[in-house]
Amino acid sequence: MAETIVFYTLSVLILGLAILVVTAKNAVHSVVALVMTFLCVAALYVVLEAEFLAVIQILVYAGGIVVLYLFVVMLVNLGRSPEEHQDPRRLSVFGLGLAGAMLLEVAGIVVYSYNRSASTVTAPAAASPVQGNTQELGWLLYTDYLIPFELASVLLLVAMVGAIVLAKRDL
């Protein structure tokens, strides 16, 4: 019962705030709504017993990435709103239609797979010698997924170098 209430509250919050992100006129309002969305998603992770991910979600998304967005929104101090310039060839209605079609497609997939109800298959839990969400996640990351993990670190390094090269006026 408690899970039902929490799930529906969080869902309404997440979707409402996400709509606010997309529709807000002012980019700063969008960013604030985005932070709130991420915090609600983190709460959802706690419901799903993924405490470590919930904390990482707050730390990396809300505390890191979105601050970056806020910085750029403030640095890009616009005299005129980008929405004022209208490209006559732009097809916004077509875009909305495409999004609607995609929603229909995803809904179809969900309904189809739910009716098949093949999701009762339980994957064998990886035998990890440790207990606790954080420890098990760490165990997986450093054993089975070591190479992807190292690659992710290389990706982050490359992104860091790239961001500095792009943002610096003269090297």
């Binding site: 405490e51 470590f52 904390v55 707050i58 730390l59 809300a62 890191g64």
Partner: peptide, 14 residues
């Protein structure tokens, strides 16, 4: 909570 210190760091970053 089992991720107490991490929780502390992440919430202060808000």
């Amino acid at each position: 909570i089992n991720v107490g210190l991490l929780f502390l760091i992440s919430v202060t970053s808000i």
